[in-house]
Design a protein around this nucleic acid. Structure first.
Lengths: 237, 237
DNA sequence: CGGGCGATTGACGGTCATCAAGCTGTGTGG
DNA sequence: CCACACAGCTTGATGACCGTCAATCGCCCG
């Protein structure tokens, strides 16, 4: 009996040593507010592929991602899946104001989140313009990214999709970690396919083609961008 | 010299007789706030196909749509276009917090908007939690719609895309107008194609197929849904 | 009536999905 | 230590769906 009903395992720690705070919504809070919000948040960890919440469920919580990668997706009744986003440390899940989750979320690898009870969080935020503005920023940035993704899904070829994904993924990681020579891809080929509106076979073939063309190098658990200029040309905004 | 630099023609009127207020962000305001905001807003009209703002331009304004339909889209350097949304009366444009528009917007048919200078609007909103929460609601609803659209673009067939579009468009109009027997489609086939990630030919063929199958009837300037059940089955959420 | 634009229809081909087989690396058990 | 199984990935063969190119239609308006 290791898991609570909501899934995830508790794990103690405090805001004081929260590494993602500067990039999270919490950056909008002053010392006093931070102490108050700390009372409301609890850390949880999830194992690889463990679900965090599901489309259609009643919204009970919202989350700050602290560590790891999550996939956010929607399913069609027949099982077709579209990943709408990968969430990284600093991202906030559960902004939505409706009473049911619009998407499902699960852990790609091991994940640590800071969980808030939605009603308490909302009450905390409702009369704090600084936090509301911060949440606005997050929402509009997400919206803008969603619009970018719509262009990709609707108007780009398979090769452009893959190149675009790799370039943007690399940029996102660069904003978090110290940039590394190889770009890790913790998600499966199937995840990438479902993110790009392709099949796993097409993703695989396109990776191979990009490698043959000298644009990337496929390594264990990730890729190395061999020709950044060419990669960005393919991803041409 | 009929147009100001920003485009659009001024046209006087007041919040008192604003028909979209209950569905717009302004519904969050009390009488006093409404009077203040009225000082900041100015009505403008745009003609068919007139641009309202463009991707990459410095953000100077935000808008409430009062009448008409607008297309919101992104362009790739080579001219490929993806329409990310059609805006209807009550929608708010320019939520974005960045300094440049992420998308372009223009009038599909004649359009009336209520324009605010962005800096003044932001100053007005910044310490009003009621308005900020309302804007949050709008942003998250838009995000949710964007996610729906990603599923459509990435995972649905041409026929599903068209059926889905027609069903949702009809629902949106129903929330505004009194529902009519025929559903007007003010946008061109090209617009629909660019919204669904298809070509104009495929859209046209799919319309014809849906008509042959008795699902819809194509009429001047719109369609009539002949078999709502079948249409919704094709659009199956 | 004729020009022009948007929409429709047709013929054809390419891109990517589908189906299927083979590969690679990792963990397991003898 | 090696055989085996399994899962994820890659590769190949084939074909469907939808894009491309082109012609025609229908309608509006001068």
């Amino acid at each position: 009996m290791k898991r609570s009903i909501a899934g995830g395992e508790p794990c103690v720690q405090s805001c004081a040593d929260c590494t993602v705070r500067p990039r999270s919504i919490c950056a909008a809070l002053d010392q006093d507010e931070l102490r108050q919000l700390e009372q409301l948040g609890h850390r949880l960890q999830y194992r690889s592929n463990e679900p965090v919440f599901n489309q259609e469920e009643i919204v009970t919580s919202c989350y700050n991602v602290l560590e790891g990668v999550m996939r956010l997706y929607k399913l069609l009744p027949d099982g077709r899946r579209q990943i709408v986003s990968f969430a990284l440390p600093g991202d906030f899940l559960g902004i939505s104001t409706t009473d049911r989750y619009a998407i499902s979320a699960d852990a790609v690898g091991p994940v640590v989140v800071c969980r808030f009870v939605k009603t308490l969080f909302s009450r905390f935020a409702e009369d704090r313009p600084n936090l509301l503005r911060r949440i606005n920023e997050f929402a509009t940035r997400e919206l803008s990214e969603a619009q970018e993704q719509m262009v990709l899904l609707g108007r780009r070829s398979a090769e452009e999709k893959v190149a675009c994904f790799l370039v943007k993924w690399r940029e996102r990681l660069a904003q978090i970690d110290t940039a590394t020579a190889i770009t890790p891809l913790p998600m499966s080929r199937q995840d990438i396919a479902d993110y790009l509106g392709l099949t796993i076979e097409t993703v695989s073939r396109t990776f191979t083609k990009l490698e043959r063309d000298g644009v990337i190098e496929i390594v264990q658990g990730g890729i190395r961008v061999a020709d950044a200029a060419r990669a960005e040309a393919l991803a041409a905004a």
